[in-house]
Amino acid sequence: MTSELEDLAARLREFARVRDWERFHTPKNLVMALSGEVGELVAEFQWLTPAEALDLDATALARVRAELGDVTVYLTRLADVLGVDLVEAAHAKLDESDRRYDPDVYRGSARKAPPLPP
């Protein structure tokens, strides 16, 4: 993890520790909370046109920012509890996508690539 993510994970770990919340921060509970927060983020965009979604007013942007914060908190806490380096995992996923989606084949296309062979 980058030092900023490591710092955030450490702060969240301490936040949970001093409140005796570690027992509630199971992977199951954290992923369920994360899912709920993603749902709240989705709700902010649900009825917007693509143009409106790109041009949020200050009030809507503040709500989206808060929901992104919630998503980041739960995702970071989940990764920490599971011992997963988020940045490393994201790079690994991007490396896989880079192998699956040849730019000459997929440029301008939203179609899904077949899985890589094992």
Rank of each mutant, 00 (worst) to 15 (best):
D20A: 12
M32F: 07
R17T: 01
R13V: 01
E40K: 06
V38F: 14
R19D: 15
R23E: 04
G39A: 13
E40S: 06
L48H: 03
L12N: 02
F15Y: 15
W47S: 04
P27N: 12
V31Y: 14
M32P: 00
W21A: 04
F45Y: 15
D20T: 06
Q46K: 10
R13G: 03
G36N: 07
E14V: 05
A33S: 06
D7C: 04
D20S: 15
G36A: 13
R13N: 11
P27Q: 11
V38P: 02
L48Q: 02
R11K: 11
H25I: 01
L41P: 02
M32Y: 06
E44N: 09
A9F: 04
W47V: 01
S35R: 12
L8I: 06
D7S: 10
E37T: 10
R23P: 01
A43F: 05
L8D: 12
R11Y: 13
L48M: 14
S35D: 14
L12S: 07
L34V: 13
V31F: 15
G36Y: 10
V42N: 06
N29I: 02
G36I: 08
H25K: 02
E14G: 00
L41H: 07
P27K: 00
H25R: 04
G39F: 12
V38L: 15
E37V: 08
R11N: 10
F45S: 09
L12E: 07
L8W: 14
L30N: 01
L30R: 04
H25P: 00
L12W: 05
G36F: 05
V38H: 13
F24Q: 14
L30Q: 12
P27D: 12
R19V: 01
P27R: 06
A33D: 13
F24M: 06
F45I: 11
H25V: 01
L30G: 03
W47K: 03
R19Y: 10
E44A: 13
R11M: 09
H25G: 03
F15W: 15
T49P: 07
H25M: 02
N29A: 15
E14A: 08
S35Q: 13
L41E: 12
L30V: 10
F15H: 14
V42T: 11
V42C: 08
M32I: 06
